[in-house]
């Protein structure tokens, strides 16, 4: 028992750089040698899938990209999977960006999915309207008159000259909104200024750190489901049957979590032993 106590006390005093190295190793190994842990869709992910699945054919869907390369591992697989699902079901996809870097993330995703995988035609099947600065003011602009805010698309083509923009004047002309979001402005603002006031259904894929903030909207029925971080993206990949980078990252994610939990337990044990000893003496 004494040996164990001493060991725990030693662990509690270990240089944090050793912990970084251990974490790096446990993340690195499963990426090189995947285990293939099973992925099961949670309710919130399933709701997003069902909502898109139940959209009438040829629906106008607005996809808003609000993330940058810094959260690409979490958000990009979501955007790719959602685009795959939308194009597979032959919906019209309109893409806007509230983040400047989002424009390039959107270009990357559209090139991969719309052009290379599904051979969709720009201007007829999908359009990239691009980035506009202003945060919630941009959302308000899209809600009231999208043509006032976007007179040209990302290629500087006039909106009136894009065939699929015919009949699109305001947010309520869309059947559904999906946002891939990493912070402000993002999902919360879309709920507050677009979906709630107009009643247009929306779903979102967010970074893990945002889940707690956004989940109340899902529970209250203000949003149709949620893709929560990399696990949410992996679950969606499983639902559409096309594995991607999120699925391959889930082994490393799960093992890293186990190691972190272990460190938390050991750290707490060391803390309580030390506190007990200091009380004694």
């Amino acid at each position: 028992m004494n040996r164990l106590t001493e060991f725990l006390l030693k662990i509690g005093k270990v240089d944090r750089r050793w912990i970084f190295i251990v974490l790096a190793v446990v993340v690195f190994i499963p990426i090189i040698k995947p285990i293939g842990m099973p992925i099961r869709a949670t309710v919130t992910t399933k709701v997003v899938y069902d909502t898109i699945e139940n959209l009438p054919p040829n629906s106008n869907v607005l996809v808003s990209i609000e993330y940058s390369p810094s959260t690409k591992p979490e958000n990009h697989p979501m955007a790719i999977s959602i685009l795959r699902h939308l194009f597979k079901n032959d919906h019209k996809v309109f893409v806007t960006c509230l983040w400047p870097d989002g424009q390039f993330m959107a270009q990357d995703a559209l090139k991969q999915v719309a052009e290379e995988e599904y051979g969709k035609i720009y201007g007829e099947d999908y359009v990239l309207l691009g980035f506009r600065p202003g945060g919630e003011a941009v959302i308000k602009g899209i809600v009231s008159n999208i043509r006032k805010l976007y007179t040209v698309d990302v290629n500087q083509t006039k909106i009136d000259e894009i065939p699929m923009m015919e009949g699109i004047y305001k947010f309520s002309d869309f059947a559904f909104l999906f946002t891939a979001s990493a912070g402000f402005p993002g999902t919360v603002e879309w709920v507050q200024y677009a979906s709630d006031p107009t009643g247009v259904p929306m779903s979102s894929g967010v970074t893990s750190i945002q889940v707690n903030e956004v989940m109340p909207y899902v529970q209250a029925g203000q949003m149709k489901g949620l893709l929560a971080g990399m696990p949410g993206a992996a679950e969606y990949e499983a639902l559409i049957g096309q594995k991607g980078s999120a699925t391959s990252g889930m082994d490393a994610q799960s093992i890293a979590h186990l190691v972190i939990v272990l460190f938390i337990i050991l750290g707490n044990a060391a803390f309580f032993i030390e506190r007990q000893r200091s009380r004694k003496y």
């Binding site: 974490l23 790096a24 993340v27 690195f28 990426i31 090189i32 810094s70 959260t71 690409k72 591992p73 979490e74 970074t207 893990s208 750190i209 945002q210 889940v211 707690n212 929560a228 971080g229 990399m230 696990p231 980078s245 391959s248 990252g249 490393a252 994610q253 890293a256 979590h257 972190i260």
Partner: peptide, 26 residues
């Protein structure tokens, strides 16, 4: 409980980003 859930999700997010960088480094 709320802060604990936030912390858990924050850890999950950071690990996801680490995985992303490792994938690129590899």
């Amino acid at each position: 409980i709320s802060f604990g859930a936030s912390f858990g999700f924050a850890v999950m997010g950071r690990i996801s980003l680490l995985i992303g960088r490792f994938v690129d480094l590899i």
